[in-house]
Design a protein around this nucleic acid. Structure first.
Length: 364
DNA sequence: AATGCTATCAACCGCCGATGA
DNA sequence: TTCATCGGCGGTTGATAGCAT
């Protein structure tokens, strides 16, 4: 660091310092934060300037408590991504990663103290489903190279032909965990209106989502990356076992399922697409459990149980596998909603709230 | 009114990846 | 190729406010 020898100030920012920083950004734009000190009298390090600007001074910041919708988005995305605050923040305009992180940590602490699961029990059911599914389908881990599921591989994916379906009642749970903005922030989540229009054209629920997968974020977390880059060999976890277990047909299902996620509010309709494929677990998918709102999500109570994560082994170990586990978990949740699955004794000891959600390994 | 607890917010710290010399 | 620098991210901590006892 080129010091300059001056003592750098720490602690709360004063209005005068804010004004200097704002003026600097107005003149020179964002970035080059270490230059702030050179160009102005501000005795703050570049990091501190960046943080102050990003969290408090930049325009269009939204202050105040989170709305119910925002809370729901956080819940969804955290279930999906873990502690990826910056990524979550990209889906909440005007909110900062710091804000979201603070909110989540508070929520986490509150629920832990209350003895509540971090996620609603429906997610825990999904764990059981995954374990069951793995026992049913999991061949010994084969070294066969993993092919990214079609939707995760924009080149390979071809959307399924339109299927005409009778209208179904909405699937509230798919709505709640729809991840409608998963694929790319460049493609805004479908609105009920846009979906309706597209259905009118195609007589099917959601369209294939935009496949701007690689453009999602500057970090390494595009889906193709999650699957293990070009050959996917580094991936592991539930998704991998799902893929390896049943091959291409399963790949397509997962691809379609991700489309389902992108479909958000039309999840039930797409769930129905899978009902006829002979999978008992999926047959009942159209009976997905009903949840009304984020508040309801919180209101559900799980039983005090504990378990190892799906796939066994140490809880949530590893980077990519962690994310994939969560991804597969939430995917299967959308498919399932099935209380009739056989529950093994091990299954009964399943409580994802005992996993280290709050300390998930980073994927940078 | 005093005290303790909890929630919230703001900021710092350390690590890591990207970039350029 | 190596090294220094920068910026971004997630974890953590300290200060303060609000509430209950």
């Amino acid at each position: 660091m080129s010091g300059g020898g001056e003592e750098l100030k720490k602690g709360p920012w004063t209005p005068a310092e804010d004004a200097i920083l704002v003026e600097h950004v107005r003149r020179h734009g964002e970035g080059n934060w270490n230059a702030v000190r050179r160009h102005s009298r501000l005795a703050r390090c570049g990091k501190s300037c960046r943080l102050r600007w990003a969290n408090h001074l930049r325009p269009n910041l939204k202050k105040g408590s989170f709305s119910a919708d925002e809370e729901l988005v956080i819940l969804r995305l955290h279930a999906q991504l873990g502690n990826k605050w910056a990524r979550i923040a990209t889906q909440l305009p005007g909110r900062t990663d710091n804000e979201i992180k603070n909110y989540w940590n508070t929520r986490l602490k509150r629920r832990q103290r209350a003895g509540l699961p971090i996620y609603p029990p429906e997610l825990q059911e999904a764990v059981r489903f995954d374990r069951h599914h793995q026992q049913q389908h999991q061949a010994p881990i084969s070294p066969r190279p993993l092919t990214p599921p079609p939707l995760l591989n924009p080149v390979a994916f071809h959307p399924p032909p339109p299927i005409s379906l009778p209208p179904l009642p909405q699937n509230p749970f798919a709505c709640q965990l729809g991840f409608g903005f998963l694929i790319s922030p460049l493609a805004p989540p479908p609105t009920p209106t846009s979906l309706f229009q597209q259905q009118q054209q195609h007589q099917i629920g959601p369209p294939p989502p935009a496949f701007a997968v690689e453009t999602e974020l500057p970090s390494c977390q595009s889906f193709s990356g999650l699957i293990g880059g070009d050959n996917g060999q580094s991936s592991s976890g539930l998704l991998e076992s799902l893929l390896q277990g049943t091959g291409v047909a399963e790949d397509m299902r997962i691809g379609e399922l991700l489309a389902l996620q992108a479909a958000d509010e039309q999840g039930a309709r797409w769930t129905q697409v899978f009902v006829d494929d002979g999978d008992e677990g999926i047959k009942e998918a159209s009976q997905c459990c009903s949840l009304g709102s984020a508040t309801n999500l919180d209101r559900h109570r799980g039983t005090e149980i504990k378990c190892e994560p799906p796939g066994g082994g140490s809880p949530m170990k590893g980077d990519t596998s962690t994310l994939l586990d969560v991804q597969a978990l939430t995917m299967s949740l959308l498919l399932k909603g099935d209380a009739s699955l056989p529950i093994t004794s091990a299954d009964e000891d399943c409580d994802i709230s005992s996993w280290p959600w709050s300390n998930m390994p980073g994927i940078r």
